[in-house]
């Protein structure tokens, strides 16, 4: 069985700054891959490249059979297969939680409103917010907003989900409730790639951890071995975190 996501020698610069310097890795179906590393190591950029939010200069990326680097990329089709959750939630402020979730299924997939509403209720249920359907984003806590954002992504039934530092803006208590939702998703067999600073979560949930450094994949190791890395750099990075 081929990989769901496959990066091969990906290069990317912002002006003179080389952010990705030959990045390659694969993610198989049902795997949870956590990308860690200092800020500026390129992990968020790699994630954004996977969803074609950034253009790459060299190399290739394949996601669910879509060639991201190709000229003929169908972005809409790609985004039906890939869901992404951002650090800053990016909920639509003028729509309720339920409407936020219903928007894409009705617009993009043409699902009827009643069915979409049921779908929204369902997704809200999965993130434990069934009672907040009619609430507007500004009435919700950061953790609740982030869970709505996850539900919004889930409603499109993506094959892969990307999480870009989704708990970085949250205090520890709210972080916990978001991580629990993500853990449930992982256990349900969702293919997930996450950029995170939560080492405990990476250790517990991730199939693989990718340590990024200076725009390269520095070390890849199974999540449960995160305490016992091979390279001194990762050891130091983890040491600084603990």
């Amino acid at each position: 069985m081929s990989a769901v996501v496959k990066l091969t020698d990906v290069h990317k610069s912002f002006g003179p700054l080389k952010v990705l310097n030959g990045v390659s890795f694969e993610v198989g179906r049902g795997e949870v891959v956590a990308m860690i590393g200092q800020s500026g190591s390129g992990k968020s950029t790699a994630l954004r490249c996977i969803n074609a939010l950034e253009k790459i200069e060299q190399g290739s990326i394949e996601v669910c059979g879509h060639a991201i680097h190709g000229e003929k990329l169908d972005k809409r089709a790609l985004r039906l297969d890939v869901g992404i959750v951002f650090q800053s939630y990016n909920l639509f402020p003028h729509l309720t939680a339920e409407q936020n979730i219903m928007l894409a299924p009705t617009c993009v997939k043409g699902i009827g409103r009643r069915e979409a509403r049921e779908l929204a209720r369902d997704c809200l249920n999965r993130v434990g917010l069934a009672d907040k359907a009619g609430h507007y984003p500004e009435q919700l806590s950061g953790g609740q907003q982030q869970r709505v954002a996850i539900a919004r992504s889930l409603a499109m039934q993506p094959k892969v989900m990307l999480f870009d530092e989704v708990t970085s803006a949250l205090d520890p208590q709210l972080t916990g409730e978001v991580l629990r939702v993500m853990e449930d998703l992982a256990r349900g067999g969702m293919t997930m790639i996450l950029v995170t600073h939560e080492m405990g979560f990476a250790r517990k949930v991730a199939t693989h951890v990718i340590y990024m450094r200076q725009g390269k994949v520095w070390e890849v190791l199974p999540g449960h071995r995160l305490n016992d890395p091979d390279t001194p750099e990762l050891r130091e990075f983890i040491g600084s975190d603990l």
Binding site: I84, L91, V108
Partner: peptide, 11 residues
Amino acid sequence: AQVEAAECLGL
């Protein structure tokens, strides 16, 4: 970021 989120949802 709002526009980006909408794009990522396939709108």
